[in-house]
Amino acid sequence: MTGNPTLRRLGLLTPALMTIAVLIGVPLMLLFWISLLQKGGSSGVDWGAAPSLGNYIRLVWEEDFDGTMILNTSYLVILLRSILQAAVTTGLSLLFGLPVALWMAGLSRGQRDMMLLLITIPFWTNLLVRNYAWLIILRDDGWLSQAINFVSPGGPIQLLYNDLAVAIGLTYSFLPFMILPLYTVFEKFDWRLLEAAHDLGATRSRALRRVLIPIAMPGIAAGSLLVFIPCLGAFVTPALLGGGKTLMLGNIIQMQFGASRNWPFGAALAVVLLGLMLFVMVCMAIWRNRRVK
């Protein structure tokens, strides 16, 4: 051990920073580079190709037989669907997560710990298994479909393989990400502020809107970010609960590394996903800065 604190700190941090640099930083740079190349060769990438934006252009335009570029909306639709699904999931998570966090904050200490554990457990259990559980419930011959059929007969109802099934699965997967940051804010909340609001004549709902929600805004923002971003890159949920018509970005990225075997195009799609994520985070940071001022 050295006596110099800066050197010691550097020594302690080196393994962590090196691991992340080599196994995450370098791959991301490679991803970016490959997204500019073309497919080919035995490994799937033509390393000798001149870098170009061809893969990104392919997202929007397609070359026709006679060489003219025509608009291809199929990827744009998937991109748009991913964003919409993520937005809907975030909205649903907020709609249900806010009351839960609010309710938890009002519980006794022991009950709060219990709820915290109950909310955290699904968050740590296998994502694949949890989505598979929904697959069983929503199947054509599953009990939910049969129950609905029993109430209003008319043949089995298709619950699986549509946008709704994917939204249910995504909300199920990421709801804890919304509840936990909200709960953290409400736990620290000074409840006398609400008393003050009532004292100043605010009704319950007005106090909620004018005092509690504005103060909870950072938690709402953090929770929304934590739900929105993993939704954008979701793969398991749409792969299990969605069908061919409900593909999301994650699915078409995976396809380029599977059946289609077009790594450079897959890399470009991954870069687009990263860019989207970055855009959302920058918007959030700007909003937060403005709020502070």
């Binding site: 196994l23 370098v26 991301l28 994520m277």
Partner: peptide, 16 residues
């Protein structure tokens, strides 16, 4: 690693 979409890191690592 918590923030980055896992699928992006996974395919990038695969290519590396």
């Amino acid at each position: 690693p918590l923030i980055l979409p896992e699928i992006v890191v996974a395919v990038a690592t695969l290519m590396l």
